[in-house]
């Protein structure tokens, strides 16, 4: 694959990434403006094929979180708006759909920074996650599944969420998102602030969910190395656009990606995060 930066739109015009199934989620030239003036997404296009894990990578402020907020309908609460383009989920145009309705349609978002309900217990957090589900036998079943998947949560079900460790909170955030029985799970920096071993564990869960239940996943990461290891497909964004995309295996070998996101220079030596940041400021793709 080419190492040259690819302007958004051209490479994507062909549709679904090669070798993938039908698209679960499609963003087509999406433009997002905050406060009527701050242009953050500038014609962003990407696709998440059904049953796959897709990673969305990019440096701070690229607009990754904004992308997920646009998909889940959270922009209005932040004075943001999709001003152009369209978002399609499971064959349905959801560009202007109400946030609650999108959850009902089968998408869940784990926000950046976990956002567990601090004063609620683990069990209550999970009940809140199932809000869109009709109460009854089926939601008890999902609760069982979540507890089976995260035995740690089951052991601590009556503990107040605000006092859990970061890793436990992340498990809870994922478990809570699963309570809505999503077809598409979106995770915004699940590894944020976690020790390497925990990052490993969390990504292990994501991979298992995908493998065992066929859950489609769209994950945002700063930790590009880990993300590209578990993902099938990767997108890299800069300043509100996709600048590079491809199968995860190819992106891992791409010299630019190596240099900027995996912290590896030409000589293969590991650069410090600070160095990488420094480079990033000097050289950008677009």
């Amino acid at each position: 694959m080419s190492t040259e930066p690819v302007p958004a739109g051209t490479v994507l015009a062909g549709g679904v990434p090669a070798g993938a199934g039908p698209a679960m989620l499609t963003l087509n030239n999406v433009e997002v403006i905050y406060d009527d003036v701050i242009l953050v997404l500038r014609g962003l296009s990407l696709q998440v094929p059904e049953g796959k894990i897709v990673a969305l990578l990019g440096s701070n402020g690229a607009g990754k979180s904004t992308t997920l907020k646009a998909v889940s309908g959270l922009l209005p609460s932040e004075h943001g708006e999709v001003t152009d383009g369209s978002i399609t989920f499971a064959g349905q145009d959801i560009t202007r759909m109400d946030a609650a309705e999108r959850v009902k349609q089968g998408m869940s978002l784990c926000m950046e920074g976990r956002h567990v309900f601090e004063h609620l217990t683990i069990a209550e957090n999970l009940v809140a996650g199932a809000y869109t589900q009709k109460a009854g036998a089926s939601s008890a079943e999902v609760l069982d599944e979540v507890y089976t998947f995260f035995p740690k949560l089951a052991d601590m079900r009556n503990r107040v969420a605000g006092y859990l460790s970061g890793g436990e909170q992340q498990m809870l955030a994922i478990g809570r998102a699963l309570m809505a029985r999503p077809k598409l799970l979106m995770l915004d920096e699940p590894s944020l602030g976690l020790a390497p071993l925990l990052v490993q564990e969390i990504f292990g869960y994501i991979q298992r969910l995908n493998a065992e239940t066929g859950l489609t996943v769209l994950v945002i990461e700063q930790n590009a190395r880990r993300a590209l290891e578990v993902a099938d497909h990767g997108y890299i964004m800069e300043q509100g656009r996709i600048v590079l995309e491809g199968p995860a295996a190819e992106l891992r070998e791409n010299p630019d990606v190596k240099e900027f996101y995996l912290g590896l220079g030409d000589e293969g030596s590991r650069k410090s995060y600070r160095d990488v940041k420094h480079y990033k400021r000097r050289k950008r793709w677009l």
């Binding site: 959270l74 609460s77 926000m111 956002h115 601090e118 004063h119 609620l120």
Partner: peptide, 24 residues
């Protein structure tokens, strides 16, 4: 109750509650 817990969830974190499909 589901609604009671949802109310406390909104009191805790409105945006997170919205991601659960809770109408603030």
């Amino acid at each position: 109750s589901r609604h009671g817990i949802a109310m406390r969830a909104v009191a805790d974190d409105q945006q997170a509650a919205m991601t659960m499909g809770i109408s603030v």
